[in-house]
Each structure stands twice: as C-alpha cells, then as structure tokens.
C-alpha cells in the first residue's frame, strides 16, 4: 500500500534548487530510510511531507505530493496534515513543562479534554516509546530534567500522542549515545506495525538495521530507491556503491 506519492517534486530556496524533480512512492507500515551526504536534500524532502518548509522564508515547492491520494499542497488544512504526519526532530526538545503536559499537549490541541482519556493516551504513548516504566512515578517532573535519550523518547511519545499515521524522523539519534540509539531503534522497529515511518539518517548501519526501503540522495536528486537489502548488497548505480562503501560523502 502506498502512503505518500510524490510527482516531479521541486523545491527552491530563493535561487537555489534543493530538490530536482523527484518521483517517489512511500509505502505504508514500513520504514523508509533516506541516506546521503549533508546538504543533499534529505531533510528538505522530509519537511515537504508535513509542510514544515512553509516556515522557511523564500521556499517554493512545485510538483505534487499526495497523502492517501489527497493533494496536501492544494487546499489542505495544514494543521490536520501535521496531526496525521507527526515529526521527531534531530535535537530532543521537550517543552518546559511536566512530562505529562508534554505528552498531553498534542491531544489537548486537538480537543481532547477529559482527564481519563488524556491519562490513557499518556500511558499508551509513553509505553510505545518504551519509557512508561522509567517515568510512571515521575510524570509531574519537568521534562527537561531527564537525560538526552529519555528526552528524545519523550518527544517520540509526544508525537505519537496525537495518533498520527506517519512518523517523520530527522536524524533522531544523531545527538545520542549508542545505548540510547539502540533503544530508539527498538522503538522505531516496534512502531512500524502501526505507523508508516520515514527516517533521515547519516548512519548507514542504522539504515541497514531498521529500514525496509532506502533512498539514496545526492545533490537534490534520488539516485536510487529500493529494498534496503538490495540497495546495500547489489546497488544498481555506481554512485550509490561508492557512497555506501565509503568512497565519498
């Protein structure tokens, strides 16, 4: 099943063309990884999927992006889009409030007021982020007093609490130690049963470990896109091969 379908996607920042005509179909309930050297357009591409690029001054997006067949750039409620397509950022950034209020922020935003419903969502989301047992007695503590890895899982739980269909992750482990990274990877693997996940990563082993499909970006173009296993074992394009064997990048 296809979740996102992109046709001839072009993105400009002022005069600079960041993405050059990309066609891609992102599958549902799988993990799609984006790899490629810095500045190749991975994050730009990711931000097109929940329209965070709207915030960038001078950014123009051409082409078509559809979510379940609906064009998200044409008369589509951007807040609803971001409810359906959650995002986890590179830098863990819990809001300056308790863990509980952090997780409940999203559901409250979307009109859930009842205490029991919120309690349930908070527990469920924290459990999904494998954090519940660690923090269940400390839900009223300031979220900023936890470790970086825990903060990132708080952010994942916060994104899940909105009950999205897609989860975009922009290098979610690049600021974390190996143990925290391992935990986040476990969380992500578990989540793909229910969510479609798109993850940008600089860590190729990570892409191999967790993703089903991989896209290799270079200078605003997708050089190769396919099953992770195939892409890493028998790459079709010479540039992909050079990149994954570490000859440049």
């Amino acid at each position: 099943m296809i979740k996102f379908e992109l046709k001839d996607l072009e993105v400009f920042y002022g005069d600079f063309q960041a993405l050059k005509g990309i066609d891609m179909k992102i599958p549902a309930n799988e993990i799609t990884a984006f790899i490629g050297p810095s500045g190749c357009g991975k994050t730009t591409f990711l931000k097109c999927l929940n329209r965070m690029n709207d915030l960038v001054e001078g950014c123009r997006v051409y082409g078509q992006v559809t979510l379940d067949g609906e064009d998200i750039y044409n008369d589509y409620d951007v807040n609803l889009l971001r409810k359906r397509v959650g995002m986890v950022f590179q830098k863990p950034l819990p809001f300056k409030m308790s863990i509980y209020d952090n997780i409940a922020f999203g559901p409250r935003t979307h009109g859930i007021r009842s205490k029991s419903a919120l309690d349930e969502i908070v527990e469920q989301s924290l459990t999904q982020a494998t954090l519940w047992d660690e923090v269940k007695d400390r839900l009223n503590m300031d979220a900023l007093s936890f470790s970086g890895g825990q903060q990132q899982r708080i952010c994942i739980a916060r994104a899940l609490a909105v009950r999205p269909e897609v989860l975009l992750m922009d290098e979610p482990t690049s600021a974390l130690d190996p143990i925290s990274t391992g935990k986040i990877e476990e969380v992500v693997m578990e989540l793909k049963k229910k969510y479609s996940i798109v993850i940008v990563t600089h860590n190729m082993q990570q892409a191999v470990r967790i993703s089903d499909k991989t896209a290799f970006f270079l200078l605003g173009e997708v050089i190769e896109f396919g099953d992770t296993e195939k892409l890493f074992s028998v790459p079709k394009d010479k540039r992909t091969e050079e990149y994954i064997t570490g000859r440049f990048g």
Binding site: R82, M87, F95, G106, T109, V162
Partner: peptide, 11 residues
C-alpha cells in the same frame, strides 16, 4: 525550535 515542535504537532 520550540515553536516548530509545537507546529509539528498540528498546533
């Protein structure tokens, strides 16, 4: 980033 994180939750 605080503002962006909130927006990304659909606020």
């Amino acid at each position: 980033e605080y503002y962006q994180n909130a927006l990304a939750l659909g606020a």
